[in-house]
Amino acid sequence: MAEALDWLILEDDMDAATRARFDAWLAASEGNARAYQRVRDAWQSPLLPVAAARLERKRGQAMVQPLRRQHRFWKPVATAAALVLAIGIVVQGDLLTRLRADHLTAVGERQKVQLADGSNVLLNTNTAFSSRVDDQQRVARLYRGEAFFDVAHDRSRPFEVEAGPVQVTVRGTAFAVRYLGNEAEVSVQRGEVDLRTRLDDARVSLGAGDSIRVGPQGFGERQHGTEAESQLAWVKGRMVFENCPMSQVLAELRRYYPGWIVNTNERLDNVSVTGNWRLDDPLGVARSLAQITSAELHEYPKLLILN
């Protein structure tokens, strides 16, 4: 991919000898050809003008000495290409999800959706969701992220939610579904829900206060009480932990912070954390975590480092 990016940057200004070397590289393997096509697709991404404009602003702020014309031109272009290449690969990998989803939330964003049958859905951070509600069916699909459903009661049309390895069926209740990686989790606030694994058709029913995880190996252990309450805290805009290892807390916090959170001290991973914080202030949560664990927090634009 790095070689393909180099060739892309040179493409418009190749002399005959450079063109011959490029053609030889392209023909050397199918992997080279695929890499080059992928780089070209990323280069044509609509995110390119955004990346280039951002880099140009930073270059203008940082440049204090004149550079040669060639360096002034190629350095920001090469950097923009590398940035867009990285973004483009992620976008391409996520393209199918984006095409399928009716609603998408950004990192740290929550969104309320009302369906045609009167059911209400609250989408959590970085969530992709679609639904189809008509006279015959009520079906929702959670492609990633987390959603809370307050379902309008209808005896004739059950409400179904598909999320990775699990299918949830209800007629009128309130519950949340979380789907991250290859694991789903269902937490019930009110009423009853029926769950079915899509792999082996195993079935479980949950009541109010219950939660359960579903992975590639099937159902996990049913939880009741404080565990389920913690899983539903985000609905009220809170992040709640009780005696959770720091590594788990940081993994959850990263879902809401629009940047990177890095822990450079492995000893912090197993420190037990209890707390109740606001979701809309992830920086404040990180500062609080640093204080209660006696860690140092270094803050940079879009980057927090704990040590």
Rank of each mutant, 00 (worst) to 15 (best):
A208M: 06
I292Q: 08
L199F: 05
D200L: 13
G172P: 04
P158Q: 06
D194N: 09
E296L: 02
Q37T: 09
L232T: 08
P216K: 14
H153F: 11
G164N: 02
V193P: 05
S211M: 10
R157I: 01
V161Q: 09
R100M: 10
D41R: 15
D280M: 06
D102E: 13
R132F: 01
E56I: 02
R267Y: 01
K236I: 02
L283H: 07
T127P: 09
I89E: 15
D117S: 02
A286W: 07
R21P: 00
G191W: 04
R203Y: 00
A101S: 13
S211I: 05
D94F: 07
T125G: 08
A286H: 09
A62M: 14
Q248N: 11
G172M: 05
A17T: 10
G181D: 14
Y36M: 05
E242P: 00
S45V: 06
L253A: 10
L122I: 10
T169D: 03
L123V: 10
V273I: 14
T274S: 15
T173H: 05
L47A: 11
V188E: 07
Q231A: 14
I89K: 09
A4G: 08
D15M: 01
R254F: 01
A233T: 04
T97N: 11
L250Y: 05
G218A: 10
G225A: 10
S230V: 02
A184I: 06
A35P: 03
F219E: 05
R38L: 09
R254P: 04
D269T: 00
R255S: 06
A116F: 03
Q61G: 07
D194Q: 13
T226D: 14
A176E: 11
V91I: 05
V271Q: 07
N307Q: 14
W7I: 08
L297K: 05
L268G: 03
T173A: 09
R190V: 11
L250E: 02
I292W: 01
Q291E: 12
R171H: 13
